[in-house]
Nucleic acid binder design. Structure first.
Lengths: 341, 341
DNA sequence: CGTATTTCCGTAAACGTTTACGAGAACACA
DNA sequence: TGTGTTCTCGTAAACGTTTACGGAAATACG
């Protein structure tokens, strides 16, 4: 059906070796024959079969992206990932690389899926999302010597792989700064209870800023919950019941903030009026909620493109003349001031 | 590095043919040797190389999903697609099929990307999203004889491919029904101006219901705009300027509804109070906007799973004993009544 | 003109599978 | 014992590429 390199060779009465060399731009082929080959390829509508190529070259020219919807995130999933994927995909496509998406069931460990990709060599490298503080996927890939990069930092694996993350620490810091500047002294922090690394980073920044302002960290004002609306709804009353309730809350997740605001409303507390609220990662919801939520916004699409570049720079096959480089970056977030604080 | 079928064969002192047959569960292999092969495979941590397999079998065991962010959808992309992808991916994974995601630049035609996938045989089948009324991707795939399925109907290609869609017609109908029951007679319809098929389907339902209720269709109450917030913001004043302004508006897209509500607010009209608003496809935004927006909600994740099943049923290699079937389904939407109407 | 170099191309192996074919051994049956 | 059948396995080709190697022809150079 589809034409192969043999068809081309037969049609031109030359060997398949020459055809291949001509198509791949090798030097040792006559300019005239190259011309004829390229023309014939266009005429016969020839495209190289990727399976044959992969087999011979030992590279599939595809990158796997692994993400895992958070447990309880039953409805619309992370709005986060589509723009990130768009950027990632766009940059990969420029290098003629495909993007394979591998999702785990929410809550289930992805090890098995990951092993399959690696062991059957379905991809040349992996991009991990939902990075945990201790991430066995990273351990596995490091040990297996399989190339990968992560969206988000982790404590696993050392500095052997490229990673791109948002500066949650600084966002936590800035959020406290802003609230203190507006007269708040009792500031609560609510974050997901999972082992997600950004929860720790956020808290570090939060603590650091409090210390700088000479405010003592009150453990009663720090709480963990499920990373969804229900989690925020359940955990917010906890901090409100402390002896010395907060006048401001920083939420480490948009869904938790929405649930938290609902809880506040039911307690007769009006966010943006009786209680300042800041959200660490902005999503469209923050913009449309009432009150609109002050939040820190990442540049997701550029991040996707950048992580693709970083991953490619770490692959010997793609690295430039200066050789293989491991790059780690932490990107700032932009504060979007709205009504809630 | 990774062990191949040759390593297994050498290790067991048998031929690679036998190893392959043992692993693939063929009948003509001794039960005892099969046992030994399986054990050795586990011990040597053997997994078949997918490239080799693909080449020999002429099938890659991967499905491409093509989507195209709408132009102007600069921020967070379709929240729509992650849950759909989750379902699609889950069902494909059960059949050991990978999912490749191919995105076009917003606004750019995807033909080129699609041709690449098809011609280099990077996937065994394609799933198309963002179906247009006349869709040249469908024409191309039909003509090329390449298997595919679509999320959304189209007028292109006849009944030769599986498709799964939401019942926009019925949603438009029900929306009118509901508004009429609440006393409205002047009902506007705002939809995207692109050639997206669902815009037509929605309008059909809208017209049908008006006719049934003996209400004349007023062209001044029907308007098209860009499929984003700005579009809704720009086009809503149009219908409001008609000689006989509406008392209710049905928006065919959530982002357009948000922009529309903003425009209404600026005109001193309070959605949910002075103006009834219904949105055809629910997203989380509808739930958190103020007022919360009455909307029709699809079951995205089950739809993803279902479309995977339908696609597989249409592939000879996967079809059951009854052979290849082309299935087309239209799924109902669930009305989520909220404050806005 | 003889030799060295360059240019160009064909040959064939290799990547890791699956599978058609055939053959030897074991077995059944008369 | 002879013939036919069943079980099991090895051989080798095939999928579509890329590429190391070598050789023929053309060219350069003394």
């Amino acid at each position: 059906m589809a034409s192969s390199i043999h068809d081309l060779a037969r049609h031109l009465n030359i060997s398949i070796g020459t055809v291949s060399r001509a198509l791949n731009g090798r030097a040792d082929v006559n300019a005239d024959t190259r011309q004829r080959v390229l023309e014939a390829a266009r005429k016969l509508n020839y495209s190289p079969n990727q399976s044959g190529r992969s087999l011979r070259q030992g590279a599939t020219r595809s990158i796997a992206f692994m993400l895992q919807p958070h447990p309880g995130d039953q409805q619309y999933g992370e709005p986060f990932f589509i723009p990130f994927l768009t950027g990632l995909q766009a940059r990969l496509a420029e290098h003629d690389l495909d993007l394979m998406v591998v999702m785990g069931e929410p809550g289930q460990y992805q090890q098995e899926r990951l092993r399959r990709v690696v062991e059957t060599r379905r991809a040349d490298a992996v991009v991990l999302a939902n990075t945990r503080r201790e991430d066995d996927r990273i351990d596995y890939l490091s040990k297996a010597g399989f190339p990968f990069a992560t969206l988000g930092r982790s404590q696993s694996g050392g500095d052997t792989y490229p990673s791109l993350d948002i500066d949650f620490e600084r966002a936590g810091d800035e959020a406290v700064d802003r609230l203190v500047a507006r007269g708040h002294r009792r500031i609560a922090a609510i974050r997901p209870s999972l082992d997600l690394n950004f929860g720790y980073l956020f808290l570090d920044g939060y603590r650091k800023a409090l210390k700088r302002h000479g405010i003592e960290v009150d453990p009663d004002l720090i709480a963990d919950g499920f990373i969804n609306e229900t989690g925020g709804y359940q955990v917010t009353p906890q901090v409100m019941r402390s002896k010395n309730p907060p006048t401001a809350i920083i939420f480490n997740n948009d869904a938790m903030a929405l649930g938290g605001c609902k809880a506040l409303a039911e307690m007769g507390i009006k966010p943006g009026h009786d209680m300042a609220v800041i959200v660490i990662v902005d999503t469209p919801l923050c913009r449309y909620f009432s009150p609109t939520l002050t939040a820190f916004r990442p540049s997701l699409e550029p991040m996707g493109r950048r992580l693709a570049e970083m991953l490619l720079a770490s692959l010997p096959a793609f690295a430039g003349p200066e050789g293989t480089r491991i790059i780690r970056e932490v990107w700032p977030l932009e504060l979007i001031a709205r009504e809630s604080d």
